[in-house]
Design a protein around this nucleic acid. Sequence first.
DNA 1: GAGAAACCGTACCATGAGTACAGTTTTGGA
DNA 2: TCCAAAACTGTACTCATGGTACGGTTTCTC
Lengths: 211, 211
Amino acid sequence: MSTVLETPKGKGEATRERILEIAEAAVLAKGFGATSIEEVIAEAGLTKSGFFYHFRDKNALAREMVRRYVATNDRLFDEIFGRGQQLSDDPLQAFLISLKLLAETMADLPNGHPGCLIASICYQERLFDREIRDLTAQSVRDWNARFRTILDGIAAVYPPREPVDLDDVADMLSCIVDGAIIMSKTLNDPGRLERQIMLFRSLVKLMFAPN
Amino acid sequence: MSTVLETPKGKGEATRERILEIAEAAVLAKGFGATSIEEVIAEAGLTKSGFFYHFRDKNALAREMVRRYVATNDRLFDEIFGRGQQLSDDPLQAFLISLKLLAETMADLPNGHPGCLIASICYQERLFDREIRDLTAQSVRDWNARFRTILDGIAAVYPPREPVDLDDVADMLSCIVDGAIIMSKTLNDPGRLERQIMLFRSLVKLMFAPN
DNA sequence: GAGAAACCGTACCATGAGTACAGTTTTGGA
DNA sequence: TCCAAAACTGTACTCATGGTACGGTTTCTC
């Protein structure tokens, strides 16, 4: 869709990006409601006026944060699941490769996964307007649909053993990732996310691989 | 451990309980940072002085909320997984029954699952002191250990097909529940939680049931 | 070098956490 | 029935933060 190199950024665009990155880290650590604009601008090295030049209010900040987060994730998924299909013509093998890549990607994060912004927002829904909630909902639906399409391709070749609903299996991947992020963070054990994805991978094998 | 009927409550205990219940609902909807004491006391029908009579500060409120939440969940799990063992001597069947009961319990919640307090706190970790974070971590460990014990009993009778790590399988249940709660809330579709638990149940069958 | 973009400074208001402390009502037990 | 403790109320603060308003200044870009 878009070129790898974004359109040439003005100075303002860079500042915008810096604000969004700092704000996202803060939101994932303390929640949106507890993230003060003051601390964001302090870390970004600009004044309150500068902040409000870029974002109308806190809600506009949230909106752009979500857009950025979703776009980044979409790109990551494009890469990982595209790579799987490059490496194998067999749909099941391709998916298994992609899941392994996903697990490795998560394991390679230096301080563990910083958290899922959609989950963070979900647990503070009342703070956000309808537009943001629609954005998060649609992105989850899109991810589920992506996984579902892959599973359809697999099921066409390898009929599943147990009669499972493929929509539910597609949902399950998102659930496991989000759940494992929470467990990793709560237990302060980043490795669990990788392990859960690999377990899901084993179960996919169990579901579809011929006996 | 404790009797079903709690020790007779004074009037203060009832107020305390009311505050905790209102606060929990608010925290699950907007996050801890965005939950004001003012609104809690407004709904509870008492003054700020009254609130600080019961709780030293907001952190004390959080601590008691977590304790209450964990205790309630422990009781629920005792009931559900105890009932499963009552209904079948076979460890696998007992677990499958319990999972069905769990799914039904979640489906019977009037407005969907209100949210997991541990997940909510996880996404606002910086707001809480070490004691609270230790509390949440320990409760997750306890729940995982509970599931692990059950799985050990099953594996002793039905050796699993694919070589899966039982610790990971035990973790997976927690992950799926927490992840499915987020998905249910984000998509405004309470049914997904029940479906995910039932899918996990199918996968447990696939893992352990003799071919 | 002019105009727009990207800021800075200052002053201000409203809200909410939290403190302090004196006073009042309610409750349970001797 | 009375008394002391428990369970509050009322008032009056301080401080931090979100957000608004607006005029001035620097910096980039054509």
